[in-house]
């Protein structure tokens, strides 16, 4: 269920995961940002946002996503890493530098998806384990 044609060497089934930079997020207005996130989550993508979402953003995302709930879309879920102890912040910055190639300006990373494609396996102090479901198990989870 990709929202664009698959590229070369890209597996045809699997869960698209998009890393979204802080710059991109900051360049958008409140509503545009929410629409960006919601469209992709409804397309069964997992987003890793390079910043924390504020309480208002999270509440508004949930409130808006609820309007779209149906057979194919179960609603939005977040895992965020924020308000964590210093040691963890350091770890997050390293991750951000290595994976996102960006210096973290403020602590925080948010993972956003829906339960068709993602299952929170464990949320610990210092890590979050998520299981990304393939198309097969995703369709089993649906209608």
């Amino acid at each position: 269920m990709l929202s664009r044609p698959p590229r070369d060497n890209e597996p045809l089934d699997g869960v698209p995961i998009e890393f979204v930079s802080q710059d991109m997020l900051r360049s958008k207005s409140f509503q545009d940002k929410l629409a960006y996130i919601l469209d992709r989550v409804q397309d069964n993508m997992i987003l890793v946002l390079e910043e924390s979402l504020t309480p208002e953003e999270k509440k508004e995302l949930i409130t808006q996503s609820v309007e779209h709930i149906d057979d194919t879309f179960p609603g939005i879920e977040f895992s965020s890493m924020e308000n964590r102890p210093r040691a963890f912040e350091k770890m997050m910055n390293t991750f951000a530098r290595r994976v996102l190639r960006k210096e973290q300006r403020s602590g925080g990373l948010t993972i956003v998806g829906n339960s068709n494609v993602m299952e929170k396996v464990k949320e610990n102090r210092n890590s979050i384990s998520l299981l990304a479901k393939t198309q097969d198990s995703a369709s089993r989870g649906g209608v």
Binding site: K58, K59, I62, T63, S65, S80, E123
Partner: peptide, 13 residues
């Protein structure tokens, strides 16, 4: 647990 869930937001709203 994380309070930002559909149930919590919807019921409170």
């Amino acid at each position: 647990e994380d309070p930002y869930t559909q149930v919590n937001i919807t019921v409170l709203g």
